[in-house]
Amino acid sequence: MQADRAAPRQRLEQERRALPFLLPALGVLCLVSLYPLIQGVSRVFYAYRALSQQNVFVGLENFRLLFQDPTFARAFLNSLVWVATSVGGMFFLSYILATMLNSRFLRFRRIFRTLTLIPWALPGVVVSLTWRYIFLVNGPLNTVLAALGVANPPSWITDPQLALWTCIAANTWMGIPFVTIMLLAGLQSIDRQIVEAAAMDGASYLQAQWHVIMPSIKQVVLIVLTLQTIWTFNSFDIVFVLTKGGPGSASITLPLYAYQNAFMYYQAGYGAAIGVIILLVLVFAVVLYIREVLQ
């Protein structure tokens, strides 16, 4: 930075040279990210009137309607549950799996590690329809439950209490490979001697996890958690294919409700307003994520 300030002419020269290399990326970014963002956000001030078949300026009316809309409240709460439990579940299960895969007492580590990646390569749509099959009333899960002696296994997808949880299960399953691989890379970078020294000093297993291992992989943990929070909050295909947000709006999430408004009820402004709410909720995660990556 100091050197930059000391030699403005040299920096100008560097900028002149850098520009052609950046131009294609800048072009794509402006065309499909900057301009659409501005254009999309500006939609929140308009509403479609069926009578005149026109978009009219309504100011902040869409937001006022949002806060009175019980389906929006449902979608908002569902989204919070969906993110907290999916990301929490992914992290918990992946941490255990990564710890096991990192053990030097494990044979065939490379093969196991590659097999862990399997769900990552599947399209979200395939994952959802597979889980929809697993959760069928007469499907595999209930067959197992019946065999275990459960008298009345539930109808998972059509039960308002359970529908969202079927989506959470599928999403957690799909996210495990990415989180596991990232955490494993973090764990591999820790010097084993430090952990062993902690054990020698009398630290219990959990103490060593919390006081030695967690601080060493803090950055990877933060990046994985923030990224997955962003991805899961914006996720569309799992819920769309598994439950369509139903029954009723029992399992609806914000991106799905935004889609329904914009493309089924022709209320683009209302859909965009939901999108702005998503963006506002995510700001904290995004700032944290960018700070960690740029460090």
Binding site: A18, S33, Q39, G40, P255, A258, V286, L294
Partner: peptide, 30 residues
């Protein structure tokens, strides 16, 4: 290269990952 806006470019690039699909798609239609 070191250039003005380098950090801004990086921040923008990383931030795009969080943009909600619905807003992008409504803006993109135009």
């Amino acid at each position: 290269f070191r250039f003005r806006g380098r950090t801004l470019f990086s921040i923008w690039l990383l931030a795009t990952q969080s943009f909600p699909g619905i807003i992008m798609v409504l803006g993109l239609f135009t």
